[in-house]
Computed example of a mutant assay.
Amino acid sequence: MIRTVEEILVDYKKCTEYIIELLKKEEFDFLKDEMEKRQCILNELISYKYNKAEVKKFYRKFDINDIESKAERLMKNKALLIKKKLKNISVNKTASSAYGNIGSSAKIFSKKI
């Protein structure tokens, strides 16, 4: 059964909104599945080769562009935040390792001559 452009774009919009909610809640485990689901919806839209004017009409009607840009901004912000946390973890690990190695170095001055 072939779905209409409107049905497909409504599903696409709902999926994108759910992705935004996952990003806000920082539930990254489910994000990959939703992104794949969204890609399948896009593939369905492309495969039927609908009239471009009709697709654009519903795209504008549902304000999908705004939702997509919001999702993109959130993804970029979360990616930067995660990179910053990883960098801090790396710096802390290096510092901890350096301080831990101080006590384990050879002690040549501790012996009586």
Rank of each mutant, 00 (worst) to 15 (best):
I19P: 09
F62V: 05
V55N: 02
E27N: 15
I102T: 07
F30R: 11
F28P: 02
S105I: 08
N101W: 00
F28G: 00
E44F: 02
E36Y: 13
R73H: 04
S97A: 02
E21T: 12
Y99E: 10
K93F: 10
I46Q: 08
R38S: 10
D33P: 03
E36D: 09
D11N: 14
I67D: 02
Q39C: 02
E44S: 08
K57F: 14
R60E: 15
C15L: 14
D11L: 12
M35Q: 11
L81S: 11
K83A: 02
A95Y: 12
R38F: 07
D66A: 14
I102M: 13
N92I: 04
K107P: 01
E34C: 10
N51V: 03
E72Q: 12
N65V: 06
R38I: 05
E34R: 11
E17M: 06
A79F: 15
N101D: 10
N101Y: 11
K49M: 12
Y18Q: 14
A98Q: 07
D63V: 04
K107C: 00
L86R: 09
K14W: 08
K25Q: 15
K84N: 10
G100D: 08
S104R: 15
L31P: 09
K24R: 13
F28V: 07
S97H: 06
R73V: 09
D66N: 13
F30I: 05
S97L: 09
G100Q: 09
A106T: 10
F109T: 10
I102S: 03
N88I: 06
L42W: 05
N51Y: 00
S69C: 08
K93C: 06
K56R: 13
E27M: 10
Y99W: 09
E34M: 10
K83R: 02
I46Y: 08
A98N: 13
K56H: 06
I82F: 00
E72V: 12
N88C: 02
L9P: 00
E72R: 06
R38H: 05
V55Q: 07
S97C: 04
K52W: 02
L23H: 03
K107Q: 07
S47N: 04
E27A: 13
E44M: 06
L23W: 04
I108C: 05
K32P: 03
A71K: 13
L74E: 02
K78R: 13
F62Q: 06
E17T: 04
K25M: 12
K84S: 08
E72S: 15
K61M: 06
N88H: 04
L80F: 11
S104V: 13
L80S: 11
F58Y: 14
Q39P: 05
I8D: 05
K83Q: 03
K56C: 03
R73M: 11
C40V: 07
A53T: 14
K14T: 12
E34P: 01
C15W: 01
K84T: 06
